[in-house]
Amino acid sequence: MAGKKLGFYVFFIPVFLWLFLLIVVPHIELFLMSLRTEDWVGNTSWSLANYKNFFSEPIYWLTFVRTAIYSILVTCITAIIAFPVAFFITKVANPRFSGFLAVLLLMPFWVSELVRVYGWMILLRESGVINHFLLQLGLISKSVEMLYNDISMVMVLVYTSMLFMVVPLLSVLESLDDSLIEAAYDLGASSWTILTKIILPHSKPGLTSGAIVVFMLTLGNYLTPNLIGGKSSLWFTEQIYTQFIASFNWNQGAAFGFLLLALSSLIIWIGLKLTRQNLTKVVQ
């Protein structure tokens, strides 16, 4: 009995240490840091000024709102594109072929995000590959700048997020019995009804977990908005970076970090409430 307990502790301690030292402690430290402010001379004191700054300075909360809205947009677009893809792979494509398709989806992730983003830049830039072909084909007479705008930024963000939406959808659609679709069809349902009454309700958990992952990843992305987004694409992570690195204001940066955590959790919570789900169900 004692041996059993010991065994449990031996296995539990690394997990506990990992959770505590690498997740809990840094967060506590960051949180304490966010509650301190520094005056011109460098003396620190306790205050909520860092949090107040966020709400009183429009540039900060506007950046957050912008980041959140774009992240929601990216999540929606990703879901709309990923759904037919996942449906095709699981239900339409030949099973032998579908493995290959899944690997194709995975392929962009064999290189780092930076390389992927640079790849897009080479394609889209004014002197880039797409422009070159369009010029050669005579479809345009003058090069067009396709980089440095919100549309291409959203496009690359969607591209980067696709996999994280497709994978949960694959597994949830895999578990959808084909005969349910056939039964609905047999009972007189149109394709649209089958989609809305059978397939979507069944896919809800996968859709939700994919959406949460994509939303968080997009919200926390730094590279893509920075490199593709162009001159006006301020992203909230960039604000945090600026506070930590350029302004040397770690206290403000820590407060922003916590606000990002809290506000994104709030958005997810509202999303779950609106779709009448709960997190434990989704995580399962």
Partner: peptide, 20 residues
């Protein structure tokens, strides 16, 4: 004529009741 317009109905081997 597609199944959703035929005056026949099918009871499936695994029943295919809608779990949702």
């Amino acid at each position: 004529i597609p199944p959703n317009q035929r005056p026949v109905n099918l009871v499936f081997q695994n029943l295919a009741l809608f779990p949702m």
